[in-house]
Write a protein that binds this DNA or RNA. Structure first.
Lengths: 240, 240
DNA sequence: TGGTGGGGCATGTCAGACAAGCTACGACGG
DNA sequence: CCGTCGTAGCTTGTCTGACATGCCCCACCA
């Protein structure tokens, strides 16, 4: 048995393995997964660990489990769309859809944080931030324009703006910072002046304003990403 | 101990109780919850049940639990915004923000389903649907325009269009159908011709296209709701 | 023919135990 | 005096085996 993605816990890696199976279409919509007892035997773990993994699937809307019956794959999450719940590098997401991502930086600078940025990033007057403007492309097509902010204190004293390439997450992880969650506001924006270079004919964007946190709840980045409507599809499963 | 909301399972009702506590602000951001062992004693259940409840909280981004340390309240979900993960009646959501909701119907009719609607609702040629157009208001201010579709077979033979009032969920539940999940596509729309009556000056909308399912995975409604940008705020917590 | 009850299997919950990670604090050595 | 190390005692993660309870199906009986 080979797990596709590393995870901290046993149940976590089993959950990602099962999620990958579903994503690969190994279980059709409506299929019943093996019982918890069988899965425990298959993976060589206890039923408790399997239950933890299955609860992860259900919380993501990938399965529905009914007492006395079993757990069933909903399988309604289409493969060509990004799950809004899943916080992943945009580059990774594009690549997982079989397209080639690129981040084209328009500006990279270290500057003092502006007043309205202080509160959300928990900064103090005069603190410096790394401010970047990027266009994100898939196979050369511009998919989004992003304005990102990282407090300089996360980047260390010997930071140089020349090392900024590719994904926002990559920059952070190069300095030992791992963004694990983000509070996201979602807006619709129509602005002909937004963007640069090859602009879309319809200047309508889906804006995700995201405040990223590390595992200790410390804010590590503030990102405003404008997705060109029609070029990137977001979806998610909502629950009662 | 009184649980605020009924739930199928013991762990489920404990989870909603804990969620309510957090929503009421009984735990501040960063607070550590009692240990699983203590919670088990408090609620008079086993540790396994508590763990199931805590996994629900973590999957919603309300808490973070660290091995060997404890589980901590993130408490970053602001109260004035709707959680996109949570599938609730829009009317309920508006009311929970202290405003008065109203659904103003523009049209209600039974008609044959159109070709492009058949597949997603799993209908066959000639099947009838209830098609409605509504404006949703909060304290009289139009918050969204919605086009909704319900297959007639869910409404029974003695259905009359006169009974359609208020929430979409209410109409369904009046006929014993309970929508428990929805696959949602999110788009930005700019269309001066969209909407009716008191239209917003900026015709930019956040469109949620939702296919609702009952607990058995049967599609029960297709809703296209255009939220007037700036009048309703959606947010969610994303996770790695 | 039709309803009814039970058997088997599924998930939900319980109890107790051990493994393993984290924090705090005190002993120890520099 | 200060820093380092180890350990005690907490936490969550996993395991085992058991019982409670819900669901489905089918044999059985009226």
């Amino acid at each position: 048995m080979a797990f596709t993605a590393p995870s901290e816990t046993l149940s976590g890696s089993i959950a990602t393995d099962l999620r990958a199976q579903i994503a690969r279409g190994e279980w059709a919509s409506g299929d019943r997964l093996p019982s918890e007892h069988q899965l425990a035997e298959i993976y060589g773990v206890s039923r408790a660990t399997i239950r933890t993994a299955l609860q992860d699937l259900e919380s993501r809307g990938l399965t529905v489990t009914r007492r006395g019956v079993g757990t069933f794959v909903t399988g309604r999450v289409s493969g060509v769309r990004a799950d809004l719940r899943e916080l992943a590098s945009l580059s990774e997401t594009i690549r997982s859809h079989g397209r080639t991502p690129e981040a084209v930086y328009r500006s990279i600078l270290l500057r003092q944080a502006e007043t309205h940025e202080l509160a959300s990033l928990q900064l103090e007057e005069g603190d410096e931030v790394l401010a970047t403007e990027r266009a994100l492309t898939a196979d050369g097509e511009t998919v989004a324009f992003s304005h990102d902010l990282i407090p300089a204190r996360h980047l260390g004293p010997d930071f140089s703006t020349t090392e900024v390439t590719g994904s926002l997450f990559a920059v952070l992880e190069a300095h030992g910072v791992r963004a694990v969650s983000a509070v996201t506001d979602i807006h619709a924006v129509h602005d002909p002046d937004l963007g640069w270079g090859e602009r879309p004919t319809d200047p309508t964007y889906l804006l995700l304003s995201q405040l990223h946190f590390d595992q200790d709840g410390v804010p590590v980045a503030l990102a405003h990403t404008h997705f060109v409507e029609g070029r990137f599809h977001w979806s998610l499963v909502r629950h009662r």
